[in-house]
Design a protein around this nucleic acid. Structure first.
Lengths: 248, 248
DNA sequence: CGTTAAGTTGAGATTACTCAATGGCGGTGG
DNA sequence: CCACCGCCATTGAGTAATCTCAACTTAACG
């Protein structure tokens, strides 16, 4: 369901669905031509690992469709998700050889990969890619810091409400079928993935989702489809400032 | 103790103690001249707030000496530290007007501030500053992700051990008076600041420090001076891979 | 229709938190 | 010089939140 037909693989960057938001967003035709020369597509099925922590990584990449997650693991197996990559998000770091975390396809996934060497050269010779990358990295840093607040200080209930609000907001940005304050979406994460995102056990995630349901803050259709009757009420449970509403 | 005499304020960037590591690290003389024109120094006493979350911020800055922290706060007062800035670290974001978190001087602090407008122009016209800023931001993102693992998955004891190991490592990088596996340093943070860093209460921080002391992993001289008889043993308590030792 | 993976629910254990009292140290003023 | 105050830190006792272990349910799939 997440992987559109990509056998044709947007050979022209101009046709690419993430063209306006990815690292290449600010590029002019000349730079696009260079990028097209160094790029190739890779597809992954849900659950597949894209890169193992510590492995050599000879490419950097943009998520074209689907969701990837970055996870870190302690020796004894405890794992924490540290990044959730949506279409147009970037993985990899110019100037480093090995990945510092596992990159896993959370859903079916298509990535637009750039060979690292030429990409690094492009970054150091053209300002537009470097500047876009800086913007995106600063955004990710902000997101990471918001996430740290969640991990360090929020209760289990607030964590769940926050995550649901984040996903709901993102969805309302893409598809614009919001009706009043009510909205609905599919959870792209299993309970376990949610627990790794939130620093909880999957049992606690399940219990808190049940609690939110019992309190009428969300409704479930099946295990994965969530209906939010009143988004503001959900945000209120997230512990954040009340004005963290929908982007206008 | 943290504030050297800065009345003279390194007017020449060439004399600046953070010249080789800050945003200006890669700059040539021409760019340094531009930077010198837009810079000014500000000093803060320990405890002072540099910027309030949400306030307009018309500068970006490098920490010259001392320590600053970035903190986020929930409505009800729970606070989480989300950044710990050491000399040469950078605050502020080109292309944004207001600060998303409080910036507080944890010790006496001197910052080298750049007026935002001209700095933004410099970033968009010269590649060297932008590229250095990208490097530093990527490093911060890595650190933030490591921190997320700590917040989400480590026990109180592991959190304390990790923080002590981080500070010990940093100190051994600057001052090189390491003798064998033993090392010692001053804690630059109060118990409360440590608790905000680690997502714990200050009582738990205190108890765990006492426990590490009882177990012989650290010794205390006064409240703030820590002696680590065997660094490897401390790292073992931090939950990280054992090889996270000293930089060689 | 059995098998499997994902999710839910319960009971008890554990960790960290809350509230409260106490200890130590440095500065200030009598 | 000493007493007092304020700040930082420690320690204790009881509580609350989350985790662990285990049983059970549901939906999907061959």
């Amino acid at each position: 369901m997440f992987a559109p037909d990509l056998t044709k693989n947007f050979n022209k960057c101009g046709d690419c669905p993430i063209r306006k938001r990815a690292v290449c967003a600010h590029c002019e035709t000349e730079e696009l031509i260079l990028l097209e020369e160094m790029k190739y597509y890779r597809s992954f099925e849900a659950g597949q690992t894209v890169v193992w922590s510590g492995d050599r990584m000879d490419f950097v990449a943009s998520v074209v469709s689907g969701i990837a997650s970055l996870t870190q693991t302690l020796e004894d197996g405890r794992t924490q998700m540290v990044g959730l990559l949506l279409p147009s998000d970037f993985v990899g770091r110019p100037g480093r050889d090995s990945a510092p975390y596992d990159v896993v396809a959370t859903t079916d996934l298509v990535m637009c990969c750039f060979r690292k060497k030429p990409f690094e050269e492009l970054v150091s010779t053209t300002p537009r890619v470097a500047q876009r990358l800086l913007q995106m990295t600063l955004d990710e840093l902000d997101a990471a810091r918001e996430w740290m607040l969640l991990l360090g200080r929020k209760t289990a209930r607030e964590k769940i409400a926050s995550l649901l609000a984040i996903i709901a907001r993102r969805n309302s940005m893409l598809a614009t079928q919001t009706v009043g304050d009510s909205m609905s979406f599919d959870l792209p994460l299993t309970r376990e993935a949610m627990s790794d995102y939130l620093g909880l056990t999957l049992e606690t995630v399940s219990r808190q989702i049940s609690a939110l349901k019992k309190d009428g803050l969300i409704e479930l259709q099946g295990k994965r489809h969530i209906i939010v009757p009143d988004f503001q009420k959900l945000v209120l449970e997230s512990g954040d400032d009340a004005d963290g509403g929908l982007p206008i």
